[in-house]
Amino acid sequence: MGIKEFFSRHFSSTEESFLNPGFLLKIAGVALALFLLTYFLFSWTMDTVIHSRKEVIVPDIQGKSAANALQLISENDLAMKIAGYEFNDSVPISTVLRQVPPAGATVREGKIVKVVFSQGGELVFTPSLIGLPLRNAELLLRQRQLLLGEVSESYSLKAEKGTVLSQEPKAETSVSKNTMVAVVVSAGEPPAGIVLMPDFRQRKLAETYQWASDNKLKVETIEDPSSLFPGGTIIDQTPAADTVVSAGSVVTLTASSRKSAAGQEEKEFRIPYVVPQSGSQRHIRVVTVGKQGDREIFNGLREPGSKIDLTVPYGGADKIRIFVNGILVEEREVK
C-alpha cells in the first residue's frame, strides 16, 4: 500500500476514520515510543553530566565565620545555602552552627551544603534603673535576664541614699542576655567641706548668682532666645547637678531670653503633674514635641506625691510627653 493510499484510508474527511480503534492504538504506540526515547535520552544525559563531576570531601565549616566557610566551600567546588539562624550565647554571631551534609561526607562537585548561622546571644533592652533603690534595681535586672555589675557611690543633693543615680549601659540599650549593668548610687548628702552643684534647671538666674557668690564661684551665662521658658529661666547648666565644685570654678548657665511680642501678654500652657504616691523616687522626664523636633524641658528625680508644674507658650509645642523611669506614661495635646 502506497503513501497516498494510506492517507486516503486513515486521514479521510470522514469522522469515523479518526475514531477507528486501530488508528488510535497506532497513535498511542508512537507517542509512548517517543516519550520513552525522550526520557531515556534525558536520563542518560543527566547521569553522564553528574557522574562526570569529580567526587570531593565536604570540608568542616562548623565554627567558621561566614567568610571563611564560604571560602572553604568554594575551594572544594561546592555551593552554600543558608538554612536558618539561631540564637546561641556561646557562639559568636555569623558563625556556622551546623552543616548538611556533615564534614567528611563524599559528594559530587556542585553539591549544595546547607548551613545554620548563629545570631549570638539573644538580645534584650536594659531597663531604666534611675531613681530606684539598689535592691529594686537588681530585681528588675534579673527579671530582664541581666546582671548587676559594679556598684559605686556618689554624694547627691537630689537623691536619697541608696538610690540609683546613673547606669551603664543606658536605659533602652540593646544588649545580650546576662550582660552586666554598672550603677552609681547615692551616698546621700556630702559632709561639710564638699560642695555639690545643685540642679538649677527651671529656676531663676538670681538664685544661681547668689549661690555662686556664697561659694566663690564664677558664672558665665549663655542666652537662648528660642527657649520655650519665660525669660531668665535656666534651661541647662555645666557642670551637671551633684558634681563636686570648688572655689574659683566656672559655672556655665544657659538661660532663656525669650521675649513676648510688644504690648501683648503671651499665653502659656500649664503642665501640672503629680508623681505617683507609692514606691520610691521616680525619674521624671518631660518632653515637648513640635515642628522644631523634641525638646526636653524637665529631667530629674522626684519624691512620691511631689508636684511638678511647668509652662510652655502656646505655639511652642504640639504635644507634651511625660516619662516615668523611662516609660511614656502620658501624652497631652497643647490646645
Results as ranks from 00 to 15, higher is better:
E168K: 13
K111S: 01
P92L: 01
S166F: 10
G110Q: 09
S154G: 14
L147R: 15
A137R: 01
S118W: 01
E122A: 04
L132R: 00
R144F: 14
L147G: 12
F87Y: 11
N136R: 12
P169Q: 14
Q99P: 00
E109N: 08
I130F: 00
D89A: 15
L147A: 15
P102W: 02
A159F: 06
R98I: 03
L165R: 07
V164E: 10
E153G: 15
G121F: 00
G121N: 05
F87D: 01
V100C: 01
S166Q: 14
Q167V: 09
E153W: 15
A137L: 06
S118A: 07
R142I: 11
R108S: 03
P92K: 06
S90D: 15
L147W: 13
K161T: 02
Q167Y: 07
E150P: 09
E153N: 15
E109F: 07
K111G: 03
Q99K: 07
I130D: 04
P102E: 07
P101W: 00
R142F: 10
E138C: 02
G162T: 12
A103P: 07
P102R: 07
L157N: 12
Q167F: 02
V116A: 00
Y155W: 12
E153M: 15
G120H: 01
L141Q: 04
E168T: 12
F117T: 07
P133Y: 09
I130V: 12
S128I: 02
V115M: 02
V116E: 04
V96H: 00
G131N: 06
D89M: 13
L134K: 07
L139Y: 06
V115A: 05
P133G: 10
P127C: 03
V113R: 05
E153H: 15
R135T: 10
G110N: 08
D89W: 12
V113N: 02
T163K: 03
L146K: 07
L141A: 08
G104S: 01
A105Q: 09
E160H: 10
K161A: 00
L134E: 09
I93W: 01
P133S: 11
T126K: 06
S90R: 14
E86R: 13
K158E: 13
Q119F: 04
G120T: 03
E86H: 11
A103G: 13
L97W: 06
P101A: 04
P92N: 08
